[in-house]
């Protein structure tokens, strides 16, 4: 996700200046993505260059609020209407790591899978703890709860995939063993018959 669209979405609520935007952004994602103020101002100037936002006169405190333009609103609508392409996401390091583990001599693939699974479950424990804590603190902070749920579901998906990898590797290993044994030079009567 680009910060550009995040800021545009926040400005759709009404004009805001940099620090307000940063606070609103972090509040929306429950602190899972912290922005520095420099990123906010750099993004705002690019949005202004592209005519997606318009700077307003400074207020009494010397802060300059920005408002979203019609073009910015159209861009925001386009962003919401367009599904995120899977290719927009960074490469899956875990999948690559496991593929390499499978083909690198001397690597204990089961141990790689298990250490990742333990890390995933540990993260799940923490997210669940945060969720219960959040439930007790503020029932109405729905956006943050949904962000937490997203992290929980992503963790769960990764663990399910690891379970699948483990089961597949095990099944392949088990079916490969009898095949290897069949290659041992035990003379087979049928084969002898066939040779004749």
């Amino acid at each position: 996700m680009s910060i550009r669209h995040g800021l545009l979405a926040l400005l759709e609520r009404g004009p805001m200046y940099g620090y307000q935007l940063r606070a609103a952004f972090e509040e929306s994602v429950g602190g899972t993505w912290s922005l520095n103020i420099g990123q906010v101002y750099t993004t705002l100037s690019r949005l202004e260059r592209d005519e997606f936002v318009l700077p307003l006169p400074e207020n009494d405190g010397g802060q300059r609020p920005y408002e979203i333009t019609g073009t910015g609103r159209a861009e925001l609508a386009r962003w919401f209407a367009t599904p995120i392409e899977r290719t927009d996401r960074p490469r899956d390091e875990l999948a690559i790591k496991l593929a390499l583990a499978m083909t690198t001599p001397g690597v204990d693939v089961a141990a790689v899978v298990q250490s990742q699974r333990t890390a995933g479950v540990r993260a799940l424990q923490e997210y669940t703890r945060l969720k219960t804590r959040q439930d007790k603190q503020a029932q109405d902070d729905l956006s943050w709860l949904l962000v937490l749920d997203a992290m929980i579901f992503q963790c769960e998906a990764e663990i399910r995939w690891l379970d699948h990898c483990e089961a597949t590797i095990l099944r392949r290993t088990r079916t490969a063993r009898p095949a290897e044994q069949a290659q041992t030079p035990e003379p087979h009567p049928v084969r002898k018959e066939a040779r004749r």
């Binding site: 699974r117 333990t118 479950v121 993260a123 799940l124 424990q125 997210y127 669940t128 945060l130 769960e156």
Partner: peptide, 28 residues
């Protein structure tokens, strides 16, 4: 796994043996 996330400690069992366990990280 999502349900195990509610636990204080998660124990992984394979073929009748405990192979690993996961405690909380300490700070969410």
């Amino acid at each position: 796994a999502r349900h195990a996330g509610w636990a204080d400690r998660v124990i992984f069992l394979r073929d009748g043996v405990i192979i690993d366990s996961s405690g909380p990280l300490g700070s969410a």
